[in-house]
Write a protein that binds this DNA or RNA. Sequence first.
RNA 1: GCGGAUGUGGUGGAAUUGGUAGACACGCUAGAUUUAGGUUCUAGUGCCGAAAGGUGUGGGGGUUCGAGUCCCUUCAUCCGCACCA
Length: 816
Amino acid sequence: MQKTEKAYTPKIIEKEAQDYWEKNESFSVTEDPEKEKFFCLSMFPYPSGSAHMGHIRNYTIGDAISRFQRLLGKNVLQPMGWDAFGLPAENAAIKNKIKPSDWTIENIKNMKSQLQRMGYAYDWKRELATCDPQYYKWEQWFFLEMLKKGIAYQDEAEVNWDPVEKTVLANEQVEEGRGWRSGAKIEIKKLEQWFLKITEYAEEILKDTDNLEGWPERVRVMQKNWIGKSEGMEFSFLLENQKSPISVFTTRPDTIMGVTFLAIAGDHPIAGELNKLNKDINNFLKNLDKTKLSEADIVKQEKLGINTGLFAIHPFSKEKIPIWIANFVLSGYGSGALMGVPAHDQRDYEFAKKYNLQIKQVIERGSTNITEEEAILEKNILINSGEFDGLDFEQALEAIAKKAGELHCGEKQTNYRLRDWGVSRQRYWGAPIPILKNSKGEIKEAENIPVLLPTDIEFSGVKSPLSEMKEFTQVTYKNETFVRETDTFDTFFESSWYYARFASFDCDKAMLDERAKYWLPVDQYVGGIEHAVLHLLYSRFFYRCLRDLGLVEGSEPFKNLLCQGMVLKDGSKMSKSKGNTIDPNNVIEAYGADSLRLFVLFAAPPEQSFEWSEQGLQGASRFLKRLWKLVQLHISKGIVKDHIYEDLNPKVKSLRGKTHRTILKVKDDYIRRHSFNTAIAAIMELTNTIPKEFLSKEATDEERASADEAIRSILIMLSPIVPHITHILWRNLGNTQAIIDEPWPDVMEDLLIEEIIELAVQVNGKLRTTLKVDRNLAKKDIEELVRNDTKMINHLKNKKVKKIIHVEGRLVNFVL
RNA sequence: GCGGAUGUGGUGGAAUUGGUAGACACGCUAGAUUUAGGUUCUAGUGCCGAAAGGUGUGGGGGUUCGAGUCCCUUCAUCCGCACCA
């Protein structure tokens, strides 16, 4: 066996390449008005301790895109940071008796070194951690701006209260209605909390969703559903013997004459009053509360109700309509009350059947295939509706809205499922909400920002330590005493604007400066689908608020969004609890970062989930070894560069054609399709195409030069995917400029066309044979060739050819 | 229930605009080299068939000279939302 002088040693060369990038600050960028900017961002991680395969996949995709854009000559910003606040730090603090801040800092250190070992092209000088006062100072400032504008406000909201630990629990700490540690039954408690008026932007955000062409369709659909716009009317029903009316929202105002009952939620004010007076209702509501705790099976529960004995007056017919309390009325949607139209709503129908309520049909039956047991849901002509008879939906809507207006009993209304965003968390490890209350209970801005989160604390886990710390809560300022807010922000608050801060990372005068206008919006955002709604919606909301403050331009923070699929093992997502994780560290140790990067990009298209495969990883590693050997062999035969091609050696022409067609295809795969797997396949194919004899001593200069051209192209094209090996091989080829500073290879148009093409020959659409012909061969010459082809003679014997279809450069089809 | 997506060899996947299905890999088979073994190299590999040929993209139907791709229908799997009035 022939021994190669230099073997492929990932451990050594990867370190070498990384040292080069660090020493030369290769990925440190500044604003350059001369160059087109490209801001590529991967969702920053929660520093949980160590990076998992999901992170590796996410960040490898982002890095490949960044490095490719750089080859195209753009000014590429790719930063990284840490979503450093959050519950796990508190849990770890309790478990390991370590301060949340120390735990977090340690984890960041760990994960950072992992990401560095992967060779990601981050501009580390912009690194940020959301638990850094220099970071959260500006979100406290931002919050106070929103307070001034009336976007932030206080209201009561329900929280999960653990009566044993005397603390508020997050939803994920409540398991089947019980506290995760105490096991105590969780109580729903109302607390004063801070909200942001995202609903004020709901319409704008919804409208703009359709224009997000660079976003996956499913994410747009999810966001639209989440906002949940529905148009209809609000009617108010006066109550017999009562002062305040009940208002109800409906999307089917055309069925107003079919109302036979009203239903209200258990916590509707009227239900609350009756609760005190009526024993049966009191019992009913008690039972409702019980079921409310087990959130999981609210869905399939039986429709239950109780008659209140009260009556409402139909606004048009003036008929008396019974009012029921029903468990299927949602308190949080609309006004917590609805008009029951059993004939035209399936739930109302079931409810009416169960409790023997009147069913009054007011819409004509259209299709006949509706059974007796179903409500008629379709929109059609109105009947049994007095003056509105004969109208269709649109006409009825107008007429009914007009009449309701005249009678002051209703108007057109738009409802959203989206509710204002509650940002208060009764937790320790988060950014303090910068608010003070004076002795009269009046709300004041904090005396100074940042309001620092004390990190020198004893953390027991029972209660947030903040409320216990007098030195934190008691403030004297300008001779007045105040009590400080002890709630902290929802961690989504930090992640809703971090992308912008990367642009102005070191600005200590403002939240953002002019640099934000240069870099934003993010040109390519890469992250998991699990953030399809909350994080991405909140970010779109914040970006508009930042816009309204004049800090950024445009309305959308993320121009293009790529949601990568999961990495599976044994058919399910890798997770610690399942014990099916693969530690990236072990993979890097055994195969090197390049093999890992190549494998995760080659295994599947980025949006798709893929199954971890040790053999696939080995395959990637094998290819890199082959590439290494190929380039070393090429170098050993002496490099012929800048050759002027004269001869028309068809093998040389063919290789050069292949090279240039591959350059074209790979660029398209990168830029338009983000289809790294096919790009890699095309590069492998080109690698396999280089004839052996071109790498031998006997090869002509022309052959050597065409091999050199192919190899150089391969290295540049692969460099975004496997940056270390390509960096070293590029240098081994004798280049003085680093491969990251090379431009994307030019495509020579006239080499793209193949002179000899393989033509498919079909009979009645079935492939019978193929022919190698000159590209420009005339149709009739092709036909002649086909008729004389030995294989075709049998197929055409004694048959009449009806028609011959030519598809230029592809096939010829004889129709018999 | 509503909405979205996906179904292609033994496996991951490719086929971008209706034009040679299975690129590129993995695995497997045979051979060579080396070795204790991994490694490396060569050839083959959708299925049936000795071959000619037939057949094949979840199932059924349709449009077309030609369908993995378009239309209808049906099944399966996955994801999201879920009593939203």
